[in-house]
Simulated assay, not measured.
Amino acid sequence: MTLRAVKNSDPVDRAKDALSRMGRADQDRFTAELDYGIALNEIKAQHTSDRAFGKAVKDAGLDSYEMPQLGTVQIKRDVRSACMWLAENEATARQMLEDGTKATSARGLHKAWKDAQRPTPAPTPPATPAPAPVDQDAVAKALEESLSASSKDRLAKAIETHKIKLDMAQQMTMHAMEQKHRQDIDKLAWDRVNQLLPGVMDRVEKTEAYRKRSGVFTKKQYKTLLATLHPDNFVGAKKDMAEASFKLFQDTNIPLVPELKRPVGMPTLEEIMAAERERESKRKVSKREQEAREMALDMLRKLYPQHYAE
């Protein structure tokens, strides 16, 4: 088949003529598509962007053609691109037809050309067969049989020594983990003691201050005595004596007992444990924290044996 294109002055008119021939069965479709592609390439050269080119094609009515039995046929973008490629690669298309390429349209030639440009994938190498499983027992038995009596003796001693080293390494690891566990618990216990200590110390200080208070009367007792000795409570000769006693009592600087509230006493271990349980009920407490709490109570017993005696 021979490809040719007839050039007229107006590419829009030539494109319309090619479209009219593409819709008629008595016309060579390849030649019509070639003429259509040449005209489109000339129109595209007149525009600076693909968007402007597409608008010009649509405005000129170059995106469809009429077929007698099917009516209006819209030209898709890939068909239009194939026709433009055909116009730019006429020699290549001609060679492909001569080589027997099975194509019935510009789109078919374009697709065959793109497929030929793709690199051929490298052949997949054959799968390497998996190695056969080794029978460890058989290997060990064969090795044992090949050894002399003295070699077997040395091997047994080496195995025993290796087992002893493994056991020692495991014991050291377990000891280190236990030490770390105890250190963590000690820290938690001291943290809890430091949290409880301010309240305990406050109770201790108030108790000691109450025990060490000094004075003859409390303020209330002093007022009661003054009221009793007041002269208004007496008549006659006793009133003169009462006035002298009242003035003497009032002028004497009698030390009064400081007004301190009687402490409610040290919190008991039961109270502390109840507070700890209430604290635990509000959040999830780990086993390690429970152990630290018990250790903190033991520390309080040692710090204040007079208050927390067994």
Rank of each mutant, 00 (worst) to 15 (best):
A39Q: 03
Q170V: 01
Q221V: 04
Q95R: 09
L197R: 13
C83L: 00
M177W: 00
I75T: 10
D115I: 04
E205S: 08
A140F: 09
A227P: 01
E243M: 12
R51G: 10
A275H: 09
E289P: 01
K239Y: 05
V6A: 10
R192A: 06
A292Q: 06
P305D: 05
D137Q: 13
L40Q: 08
A103F: 00
R279F: 10
Q290C: 03
S9V: 07
P11Y: 04
D26E: 14
I185M: 11
E33H: 03
D184G: 03
P198G: 12
K7V: 12
W85T: 02
L269N: 09
H162G: 12
T2Q: 10
K238E: 15
P133A: 13
F53L: 10
G108A: 15
G100F: 04
A274W: 01
D232K: 15
T31I: 14
Y36D: 05
A158K: 07
M22K: 03
E88P: 00
R29D: 04
K7I: 12
A93Q: 10
K187A: 11
D232C: 08
R288S: 07
I38N: 05
A149S: 11
R192V: 00
E66F: 13
R288I: 03
L40K: 07
K261I: 08
K247A: 15
E178G: 00
S9L: 13
R301S: 04
K152S: 06
S146M: 09
K187Y: 07
N89L: 02
T252I: 06
G215K: 03
K55Q: 15
S214E: 13
V12H: 07
A292I: 01
